[in-house]
């Protein structure tokens, strides 16, 4: 899979990421590091344990890194989830939001695996 195909698969703009990060090699390197990031796993656990403050922070981290790497779908779903936890315990059922994040995250991870 090429970098361009990758961005088509995860719903991001190849041109935009190239404008900001300048080289495919660098983009690929950063995406490789994304696999080492534990924000998603930690967030999953924290939500299960209702540690809302920690879950908010990890969702925020996930949102930050995905926007910076141009992972548009994951950025959008994690932003929504993050905002729902900004003031502590969410007032709505967050399961659908979480599921979207999970789907987007898994798409990103498997696509990086095909690079």
């Amino acid at each position: 899979m090429s970098i361009k195909d990758f961005y088509d698969a995860v719903g991001g703009s190849y041109d935009e990421i190239m404008r900001r990060l300048l080289s495919e090699e660098r983009v690929k390197k950063y995406l490789g590091k994304f696999l080492n990031d534990k924000s998603f796993e930690q967030m999953t656990e924290e939500i299960a344990q209702k540690k809302w403050e920690d879950a908010f922070r990890d969702a925020h981290n996930l949102k930050g890194i995905s926007v910076n790497l141009g992972l548009q779908s994951l950025f959008e779903s994690s932003s929504e989830l993050c905002e729902s936890m900004r003031n502590g315990e969410p007032s709505v059922d967050i399961q659908p939001m979480y599921d979207r994040v999970k789907t987007d995250y898994e798409t990103v991870v498997s696509s990086i695996g095909q690079l």
Binding site: R26, Y30, D37, N61, I65, N68
Partner: peptide
């Protein structure tokens, strides 16, 4: 930054 990946990216820059 508490996220190693962010630190790595900024360091490289």
């Amino acid at each position: 930054d508490d996220m190693p990946i962010n630190c790595d990216i900024l360091e490289e820059i």
